[in-house]
Structures are given as C-alpha cells and as structure tokens.
C-alpha cells in the first residue's frame, strides 16, 4: 500500500532517470570504506611489527629485531610449537571422525538419527564461552592428570578442539556426499567390491575436495581458537593465541605484533597449501558460512 503511494508520488514528479543498480557513487564509496576499515588495522599492525620502537606509537625506522626476539623467546616458541602440534593432531582426528560420521549419516537409517544430528549441530551453535567453561569444569571434575609429559599434556586441549572441529568437517563432507552418484557404488558392489574397497577407491577420491576443505577448516579453527583453549588449558600449557592474549594484557610491544604476524602467516600458508590441492572457489570458510547460513 505504502509502495503504491510512493510510486504515485514519483510518477507525479515525472519519475527520474532509472540507473542500472549498483552504479551509485556513494554505494561504491561505502564498499571501499568498509573494505578499508576491515583491512587497515591489520595491515598497520603487521607493518608496525617492523617498527624500531619499543613503545610502538610512531614509526622509528625498519627493523626485524622483534622477530628475532620473538623466535628467541622460549615461552613464545613453546606456545607456537604447542599450537602447531595441537592443530595437526586435532585436524587428523577431526577429519577421520567427522568424515566417518558424515558417511554414516548419509548412508544409514537408524533410530535416534534426528537426535544425533541435532547433537552434532550443537558445537556449531553453542557460544565459545559456554563450551570453554564446560571443558574447564569437566577436566577439573574428572581429575584429568595435569602434569603429563609433552605432548600428552596437550591431550585435554586436543580433545576439546576435536569436539568443536569434527562437526564442521562432517557438515562439509555431507554437503559433498549429497552430490554422490549412488550408481557408482552399486556398480562396484555388483562387480564384487568389498566395503573397504568401495570406501578407498570410490568414496575417498570423490570426497577429496571436501576432505581438504574440512582439514583446512579444522586446522584453522584449532589454530585460531582462543576462548575454549583459554579455559581448557592449565597454567603450564600455553598456545600461541593464549600467549598473545597474556602479552596484550601485559604490554603492547612490537613483539606482540611480530607474534601476531607469525600466526597470520601460518594461517595464510595453510590456506595456500589447501587451495593448491583443490579449486580455489571452494574455500572451506565459504562453505562454513554457507552452512552457517543454513543451520544457525
């Protein structure tokens, strides 16, 4: 109704030149500004990791000494190694558990399937902080040993990371399975292939892009996680984000910028490797965002 009135008023004024959508200068300006605002702080942060000034407020010349300091800081190095170890192991476990769960949900009818699917969606929607404190309470209550030798000392963090990563892997793998032609499987079965043979020779090659996307997703989710790790880890096991967090609270020096830049580069390298292995437009996070749009 309101629209009709608006249209009438417009007509009375003789309408106006109708441009093709998306031509307006202010719209383009807004997009440019948004992209600038999204990227500028990060670019500046990275640039200032090379700043030759401890207070790091104004530019005082180029130096790489804060990277040297970062790499010679045993605590920071330990955090980096912990982060990578956790990310690699939890990616491996999430990939196997997530892909198998996706295959099961795709293939079988079973009682309680809806409940299981609902429960699998939970880690995708439960706030990080709730999951973090749940892990903290759980590991404290069951008395998970806290003084294990490395890398077993990382086991509680790995368990938590797998718990929030594998449902994402399952979502990505299931999305790909939806496009699988069941006739290939039937043909193989008719020709006498075993379950194992079908899995290895038909399903896995078909799923390869989804597995790479899922692995990348699990790896970056683990590497980036701060909140859950912060609550799960004891005082002795520190990951890079947790270490950076405590550095940020303590003092803001170019060393923090250097450590942050290293973490960004690690994610970038992982992404580049993964996109090399698959087609670039199928990046995992796009899939995640699409799924998130569908599910939560």
């Amino acid at each position: 109704m309101k629209g009709v009135l608006l249209m009438k008023r417009r007509r009375d004024k003789g309408g106006g030149p109708v441009l093709a959508p998306g031509r307006a200068v202010w719209l383009k300006g807004l997009v440019a500004l948004t992209i600038l605002v999204l990227h500028a702080p990060i670019v500046v942060m990275m640039v200032f990791s090379f700043n030759n000034s401890r207070r790091n407020v104004v530019w005082r010349g180029f130096t790489t000494k804060y990277y040297e300091q970062a790499f010679n800081d045993p605590a920071l190095l330990e955090a980096l190694i912990n982060s990578l170890t956790i990310a690699v192991i939890s990616t491996f476990l999430s990939l196997i558990i997530g892909a198998l769960a996706a295959l099961m949900l795709w293939r079988f009818r079973f009682p309680g399937k809806g409940a299981f699917e609902g429960a699998m969606a939970l880690p995708l929607v439960v706030p990080d902080i709730c999951m973090g404190v749940a892990m903290m309470v759980f590991f404290a209550s069951i008395g998970w040993p806290s003084h294990l030798p490395w890398p077993l000392s990382l086991s509680n963090i790995i368990a938590a990371h797998v718990a929030f990563s594998f449902p994402f892997v399952a979502v990505v793998v299931r999305a790909r399975l939806a496009h699988f032609n069941r006739e290939w499987e039937e043909a193989a079965r008719d020709l006498g292939a075993s379950e194992w043979r079908i899995l290895m020779d038909i399903l896995l090659p078909f799923l390869k892009p989804a597995l790479i996307a899922g692995a990348l997703l699990a790896f970056t989710l683990s590497l980036d996680d701060f909140v859950v790790t912060f609550f799960t880890s004891g005082p002795e096991t520190v990951t890079l984000p947790v270490k950076i967090y405590s550095m940020v609270r303590f003092s803001v020096t170019p060393k923090v910028n250097a450590a942050s830049t290293i973490l960004i580069l690690l994610t970038v390298v992982a992404t580049l490797i993964a996109t090399r292995l698959q087609r670039p437009e199928e990046t995992a996070r796009a899939e995640m965002a699409a799924q998130g749009g569908g599910q939560g």
Binding site: L38, H39, P41, I42, V44, M45, F48, N56, T220, L223, D224, F226, P241, I244, Y245, V248, V252, V256, S260, L263, I264, T267, V268, T271, R285, A289
Partner: peptide, 15 residues
Amino acid sequence: PFWINMLIRTYALIA
C-alpha cells in the same frame, strides 16, 4: 578477515 584470528583483529583495533 575470516582467516585472521579474532584475537589479533581485536588487538589491532587497540592501536
């Protein structure tokens, strides 16, 4: 920015 750690992006805003 999806690919960049939320902690780091928040830290970048402090500066």
